[in-house]
Design a protein around this nucleic acid. Structure first.
Lengths: 236, 236
DNA sequence: CGGCGTCTTGACTCAAGTCAACGTGGGTGG
DNA sequence: CCACCCACGTTGACTTGAGTCAAGACGCCG
């Protein structure tokens, strides 16, 4: 089923089977999208929210010169822009990084869901608050960590998220992001990202080759980057 | 009334008088707190949420060496840690900056509110999403702006928030934060914050003297710092 | 009056950005 | 099938914005 990975392995309220079924029935359409495609642009009114089934989606903001700051990277199982439902529009852009499979959920279906299944509301709310918790961790990362630690922290976070939905075995995983993408997420240039990746490899912590990441020493990487996964609310 | 400033001048659903009354009646106690007092510590279970009536509260995270990253500064009218209601605990610390008056709202009262007044839920959800939108803007600020622009951006944001609740006339306002506090919010050292404030004063953009901020040229400051208030969802 | 937290300023250091050149590999079209 | 192309990755040399360290000034409170 489409929502099988939604909040999978996340602490918080359990999802009742009826609630999950209600979610399934609220899906408008399921679509495949190519890589590097803009889904929603800042400010335009949106009438549906996007649930990510396969692939990677990022949210970003551009500065005056068009330089991009990625504010979130989403993995399968994420309700990407659920916050657009109460907010009515986004304050940033949304684009695919890789080819994706998404399910769109019209907001009018969510209205029905809200009145039919009040228990589900707190769950959806919870899901948007996880995003906010990740935002805070990104603020910390950019504000307090140096470049190596930022990169390590980013990889630790994305690995933990992928592992929760079965897309990482704890050591190695697919991540089709360029060094430029990674830099835009970590607030450093692609040139410096390259240097940091080399440094991590030389220290035997992490290796990335052609979209495949090997975490050679996850505990050491977490230590280096002051990564504590509790903010992700993942079980166990 | 206590909740008069809640979501004041914010776009989004209007608050029904009955809903506001329900909020009022859910207040547990109203308390006065001294400056520089920790309210909630990371990870500890919380059974109530804090609404700020008077004063300034900040949320922050410490790095390994105890250096602090402020992730949010709250002004009167903010439901400071409403997200602790679905999340059950905080992923960061909460402390007063100045002496404060707060209203605590026990989560069990919110449970009652949730079932009695379903319309209010979306409003509370909306309020936590505003925080998330601000988080994203902070990520952008730290990731893409240089030190002067970060400082300018921070002042623009806080001025807009204070103005929405009548605590700024658009030019001058009280802000009892030290240069060290400001630095912790903008991800720079207090020494550099001092230099940036001097620079802003020399350029005739902003002046800060003993807790009072004068925005000498708000439009120019907003231009310099790429500040666009739309993410705050403030009317007009 | 003394003391402490805050602010201010200068001199020096260093992490990250910039610029520029070159390598490399997968995809496309002649 | 090969040649070219282009996006991506890699590396070095140089520049610069912000951190660090240190000393002194200011101002408020006990």
């Amino acid at each position: 089923m489409i929502f099988d990975d939604f909040l999978r392995h996340r602490r918080g309220e359990q999802i009742l089977p009826e609630d999950r079924a209600a979610l399934e029935s609220s899906v408008g359409e399921v679509r495949s999208l190519p890589a590097r495609m803009t889904l929603v642009r800042k400010g335009e009114p949106v009438h549906f929210s996007t649930y990510l089934v396969e692939g990677l989606i990022c949210r970003y903001m551009d500065d005056r010169e068009g330089l991009r700051q990625v504010v979130a990277v989403h993995v399968p199982g994420d309700f990407v822009d659920l916050h657009a439902y109460p907010l009515k529009h986004l304050d940033h852009d949304l684009a695919t990084l890789t080819a994706c499979k998404i399910a769109t959920v019209p907001h009018k279906n969510l209205d029905i869901l809200m009145s039919d299944r009040p228990g589900l509301v707190k769950l959806l709310w919870f899901s948007t608050l996880l995003d906010a918790a990740m935002h805070r961790e990104w603020i910390f990362r950019l504000g307090r960590l140096d470049a190596v630690a930022r990169v390590g922290h980013f990889f630790c976070e994305i690995e933990a998220k992928l592992r929760a939905v079965g897309l990482s075995d704890g050591v190695s995983f697919e991540l089709a992001m360029t060094q430029n993408d990674l830099g835009e997420a970590c607030g450093i240039t692609s040139v410096h990202m390259n240097r940091m990746l080399r440094m991590l490899k030389e220290q035997g912590l992490l290796e990335m080759r052609a979209s495949r990441v090997q975490m050679l020493d996850r505990p050491a990487l977490a230590r280096l980057s002051e990564f504590d996964p509790s903010y992700l609310f993942i079980d166990k």
